[in-house]
Each structure stands twice: as C-alpha cells, then as structure tokens.
Simulated assay, not measured.
Amino acid sequence: MTIFIIRRLVQSVILLWIVSIIAFLAVYLIGNPVDLIANDMSTPAEREAAMRTLGLDRPLYVQYLTFVGRAVHLDFGTSFMSSLPVSQLIFQRLPATVELTIFSFLISLLGLPLGVFAGLYPKSRLAKFIMSSSILCFSLPSFWIGLMAIMVFSVYLGWLPSTGRGETVSLFGVSFALTWSGLRHLVLPGVVLALFNLALLIRMARNNMLEVISTDFVRFARAKGVSERRVIWVHAMRNIMIPIITIQGAELAQLLTGALVVEQIFGYPGIGRLAIEAINTLDRPVLVAYMMLTVSIFVLVNLIVDILYGIVDPRIRLGGAHD
C-alpha cells in the first residue's frame, strides 16, 4: 500500500507539471488581457506600461518559470482585473462550491437504494417509474432543467430563491451557508447539479444488481439457507460497490469542478462562476489557477478511490509485485 501511494504521488506531480505547461500555453493563446484593460484611446506607451505592470512584456518561458516558482508556495499571482491575490479569490469562492458539491453528492446517493430496488424488482411499476425518470435526467441538459426549475419554483410558486447564496455564517474564518436563507438558496442549484449523477447511480446500481443476483455464488448462498437480507446487503452489495465507487469518485470530482453551468445559471458565487468571469476578462492568473485546482482535485479523488478499493474488497492488491 505504501509503495503504491508513493508511486501515485510521483505520477501526480508529473501530471500536474504537464498540465501546468498546457494550461499556461492555452491561456496565453486565447488573447491579450491588455486589449480589455486598455481603452480605444490608449496610446502605445500606455499599452506598453500596462504590459510591464502585468509582467506580460517578459518572454513566455520567464513568465512560466515565475508562475511555477510561486505555485509551489501556493501563490498563483495577482488577478489582472481585481488586483487581488488569486489564492485569496479562490479561498473566498471555494467554500460555496464545496458546500454545493457535498449537498448535490448526498442527494445523488439516493440513486443507490433506488437502483438496488429497481434491480431486485425490475417488473414492478415503481421500478419502471424509477428507470423512466432516470432516462429523463440523463437526456435533459442541466442548463434547461435549471431554467425550468427557476421558472416553476421561483417565479410561479415563489417557494425558493433563484440566485445568490443567501446569508452565511463564519466558522474559523470561512463562510458557510448554515442559515435558513443559505439552505434555501442551496436547494435549487444543488438538486439540478445532482440529477445527472443520481440517474447514473440508479442505472449502475440496477444493472450491477441484475448481474450479481444471477451469479452462481448468490445461488449457492441461497441454497445454503442464507437469509435473503444477508445475500443482498452483504454478498451482492459488496460486489456491486466496486464499480460504483470507481464512478462515484470521478463524479464527485466532476461535481466539484464541473459546476460552471449551474453556478452561472443560479448566480451562485463559487469557483465555477469565478472561472467564467475570468474567461470573459482574460484573467490569466485566475484561469491557470482554476485549471490547476481542478486537476489536483481529480488526482486526489482518484487516489482516494484506489485506496477504497482495498477497503471494500481486500482481494484487490494495491501494492506489491503485480502493481
């Protein structure tokens, strides 16, 4: 296990280095932020002064080495637009995205018992309704669902707010939406963000359960007189959880880093919306920092998922000669 973790950490560092190069070059190619900062009446001397102020007059490799040197110390430079440290901007927005992700992920976990039920009783009306609903959640894009949710629950019914984060409380210097207003603002974006993963989990759990309950070891357990509850919740569930953990680990990272559309629709002040604002203003330091953060999250989540394999099923070897 230790050798495996060390190996994965080394691979992760190499991956982050490669991504930093790609991200830096990609952001460099999309445009010049001075074109947005300077107005049409700016003289060449004023534009050149703006370039020097932002550090864009130096060779590209020097800009990259400067960025890497700072990034090692978690310093991603200063935002071109707000003149604030990028780390500060991300730290201010990250709690909102984290709480939205956790709320959405917890909702999506309802798909596990729903999918298991649909797999155990595939011909029941409730199972057919569950599967039909999951197809809708797969088919409809999140931006359309979000707009319809705002129209129904905010405009027509007036039950829930449509934008913002609501009132927050500060704990250990970090703001959390642990108020009634904050929780009400969390419902619509959280549910909309969760629907795709909810549908995915339903279908995975159903298909895996249908496959597992028809295997020989389940028939053998039943023939031995093992109770149906133990057959399902111990023997069958252990086998269906391996692929589910794999997908859910990736989906958790996807929720955390892929809330761009939902945060934009609902005006939720998370890092996804910060990235959209940075794209619109060509704020290079913010964009590169966001890309590095998303990749780091995926790498960390995948490492945790691999470790969980061994906890769920000890037969899976994470270290040793066969790695």
Rank of each mutant, 00 (worst) to 15 (best):
R230N: 10
E211F: 10
L260F: 12
F172G: 01
R222K: 15
R93E: 07
F176L: 15
T101L: 08
V169P: 03
G31R: 04
M237H: 00
I247F: 13
I297S: 11
D313A: 03
M131A: 10
I3N: 04
W159I: 12
E48W: 00
M209F: 03
G111K: 01
L195S: 09
R165V: 12
L60C: 02
V169A: 05
V68Q: 13
L300N: 04
L293C: 05
G119C: 05
S132Q: 11
Y290V: 01
G272K: 00
S108N: 07
T101C: 05
I202E: 14
A253Y: 02
P285C: 04
F217T: 11
S12C: 06
L112F: 12
F129I: 14
M131W: 03
L112C: 05
G270E: 07
R229L: 08
P113S: 02
L160M: 11
L287F: 03
I135L: 14
A127L: 09
D40R: 11
V116A: 06
G164R: 04
P189S: 01
T43Q: 08
S42E: 05
L178P: 01
I316N: 01
R184G: 01
E228N: 09
S170G: 02
I3P: 00
W17R: 03
I18E: 02
T215G: 13
A253S: 14
S175H: 13
L293A: 11
L110V: 11
Y309I: 15
P243D: 09
M151P: 03
V68I: 15
A205Q: 07
L274A: 07
L106I: 12
I276E: 09
S87F: 06
L36E: 01
V295Q: 04
E277W: 02
F129M: 14
L200M: 13
L74C: 03
L56S: 01
Q254D: 11
R70E: 12
A253F: 04
D216F: 08
G267L: 09
L9C: 10
I311P: 00
